[in-house]
Design a protein around this nucleic acid. Sequence first.
DNA 1: GTTAGCATGTAAGGAGTTACATGATTTT
DNA 2: AAAATCATGTAACTCCTTACATGCTAAC
Lengths: 217, 217
Amino acid sequence: MSRRSGVLEFAVLGLLRESPMHGYELRKRLNTSLGVFRAFSYGSLYPCLKALVQRGWLAEEPSGGLGEPPASLTGRRAKIVYRLTAEGKEHFEDLLSQTGPDAWEDEHFGVRFAFFGQTSRDVRMRVLEGRRSRLEERLAKMRASLARTRDRLDDYTLELQRHGMESVEREVRWLSELIESERSGRPARGTGPDRPETPGQDRPDRPEPGPSDNTDR
Amino acid sequence: MSRRSGVLEFAVLGLLRESPMHGYELRKRLNTSLGVFRAFSYGSLYPCLKALVQRGWLAEEPSGGLGEPPASLTGRRAKIVYRLTAEGKEHFEDLLSQTGPDAWEDEHFGVRFAFFGQTSRDVRMRVLEGRRSRLEERLAKMRASLARTRDRLDDYTLELQRHGMESVEREVRWLSELIESERSGRPARGTGPDRPETPGQDRPDRPEPGPSDNTDR
DNA sequence: GTTAGCATGTAAGGAGTTACATGATTTT
DNA sequence: AAAATCATGTAACTCCTTACATGCTAAC
């Protein structure tokens, strides 16, 4: 009933903090920004939006905000544009600053990372290090369990185990590199060149209609 | 109510096919055999077992099977040992032979792979190839979406995307190696460089019993 | 003139988890 | 005698999906 999920709620607040949007677009951005990690359907998004409005974290702007013509002229069905309220912003910042174990478990880490641009450096460090030690712990258990059961397992199970461990080891290396980068300045190591410092504050413009963004399955 | 899950049900049938077990042990094996991929709690396992019994796929053996003393003598609380019935075996083989898209989606692929030892070679091939082309499709979408949105994304989102894509690419390579191995004989491919045919024995491991099997969270 | 995309929603249900409840037995 | 492990189970809840319902517009 309440629909106050963890990940979805967090992501919605985070995206709306960057700029107001309506549900349909939000869902597209959700499924590209968070990339591989999660995909959400309208069946969860719309109820979530309503719940967030009821809590006072979002406000609906019935039609196109301020400078836009009413729906009756554009023809399109009335969009409901959602925008983060002051309380919503405050709440999101609370969430951002949390560094409990929740922050680095599998379900949450991806979305936390996705909003690292909005996160303070020390929180980023704690989350990255928390994640890394969580994975190292897991790795130790896997090694122990493998040593115990190695000869009972068939080739495929063994191969699955091996590949799983390698994946975890790879993520640990990735985290180590990121932690190293954090310690000594900016993330670096992107595809493009270093962008010094763009806070990305108020941008009342919407980026671009972006014709076909088919993220549907 | 019915609790007839996908993954859990499959895994339970698969493990019980190898040998009868009681719930508690089953759960431990579930969480090590399937490794990183999933962890199940008693709250889902026990109802699932009951549902499988009701469908006639499992049978309960109230106490320790045939040659064992009754619970009143061993002291232990009566274990309920579950064993796969003939119908259950048949059903599991049906499941094993299915090669629909379900078999290679994220949620199912791991458990399907874990029981490749029980799966016929052509089914294995179809599942591996299905998985691979699913991932390649996903990769194409990610690349397209990245090309479209690259400059709007901040460094962290970009890095997340990049790492996600690399993970998928890595899994594709893994699958390709496995497919290649399948085509030309046995799985092979152990941990180190090419070991001709040693099922893993000599190793600087400590065979320590390690009494605490704490798979709990 | 039909497919594809835009846009919003609801009802029902699936697949699991957490927290609780119980109790015996082995280890420390 | 306390703590850990073995062992089984239930009720309530979470978070999300699927399938459905609606209707408009742009492009092929």
